[in-house]
Design a protein around this nucleic acid. Sequence first.
DNA 1: ATAACCATGTTTATATATTAACATGAAAGT
DNA 2: ACTTTCATGTTAATATATAAACATGGTTAT
Lengths: 223, 223
Amino acid sequence: MYVRGDPVNKSTLISMAVVRRLPKYYRYLGELLRRDIDRISSKELSEKIGFTASQIRQDLNNFGDFGQQGYGYNVKELHREISKILGLNKEYNTVIVGAGNLGQALANYSGFSKQGFHLKGIFDKNPKLIGIRINDVEIKDIDMLPEFIENNSIDIGILCLPKDSAQEVANVFIEKKVPGIWNFAPTDLEVPEAISVENVHLSESLMVLSYRLNEANLLDESK
Amino acid sequence: MYVRGDPVNKSTLISMAVVRRLPKYYRYLGELLRRDIDRISSKELSEKIGFTASQIRQDLNNFGDFGQQGYGYNVKELHREISKILGLNKEYNTVIVGAGNLGQALANYSGFSKQGFHLKGIFDKNPKLIGIRINDVEIKDIDMLPEFIENNSIDIGILCLPKDSAQEVANVFIEKKVPGIWNFAPTDLEVPEAISVENVHLSESLMVLSYRLNEANLLDESK
DNA sequence: ATAACCATGTTTATATATTAACATGAAAGT
DNA sequence: ACTTTCATGTTAATATATAAACATGGTTAT
């Protein structure tokens, strides 16, 4: 389990560019594993995954010497190593706050549980939702959240609320020392250093798509 | 409307690093607008948004000279300009394919429609779902998709399916020349140059969070 | 057993992105 | 009216990220 306050060795801190590629390695290696392929070179992986072989070797080498000269990487071993690096060998207790459409959709998704992310509670302030069971978890009144966190050692708080109430609930997470926040609210949360926030800003993602649909015209006009 | 085939002037192509910051500018400017603030300098905006003032000026200057020396930027004007850059002054017709939890959640979200993204159709292959109405749109059989796209000039296809069928449906989008794909399926789609894919890989996002929860320990061990 | 090849980890070079510096000229103050 | 301040757009410097090059040593084939 993650212990806050541990000093992070800044000199060896891995850049986010690298970290965001790790899940993709993990996914491709998982596919190779299912296809019973037991070895792969950075060159072969490069052709499948679309990164350069050089980048793959550099990325992996941040975490250890997983390969072997003249052979490449053992798929099973590398898959397991990356899984460990990503912390997927551990279990996490989560709560969802905000039981609207998105909150319910995430609650219903069984894939997270398979990866070790266990939904312990769902909270909302809407009386009409309270009491409803989603995926075997009952929606509780948001007033119960602080106590619930204390009693269930929650590792990740998932925010699926409108932006106005998001910081308020984030403050509860901070207060109760929940180390990770998965934020779907369209706002930038203010949290202390020790707490990690991962944002999923759907509108922003859609805007980027919309930008690209118009990019050609945009650049045309500017000339 | 976006016209495919237009040549993109590669020399002025804006980097994705810049593009991904634009929605955030748009959001903060929107907030200033609601608070009736009519001017802002790059320095002030820098303090709110967390980018350096220099970066803000460089980013904006990619698209035009929106500011004025000694004054700063007119909030209303800049907001409108960025909205145009992002293509938010236009309307888009969308379809959702995959009416599971996530597909339904996106269909129910009214915010997209307010921004000009109009849901025209929802498709699924599950007979139990076909016929159900979500947010005034009836779920149709996926077999109807190609014809529907032709008759409704669809700009954006939203994929909310398991990874196995995602490429198959993407091929329909490609065939029918849908210019944009918003992909929630946990796979990398293969599409021609002319088509833009914006991925939302929720599991990968969660893995990045999980990585960071363990980062301190990880770096500890490696020493 | 030996030679040819392969593919790693690592170093060096290049490209990209970010930050700092600065000249220009408008805004605000006296 | 004149001076000072401000804040832009832009250029220069720095930092980061990506790609190429290469020495080492294991693997495979003969």
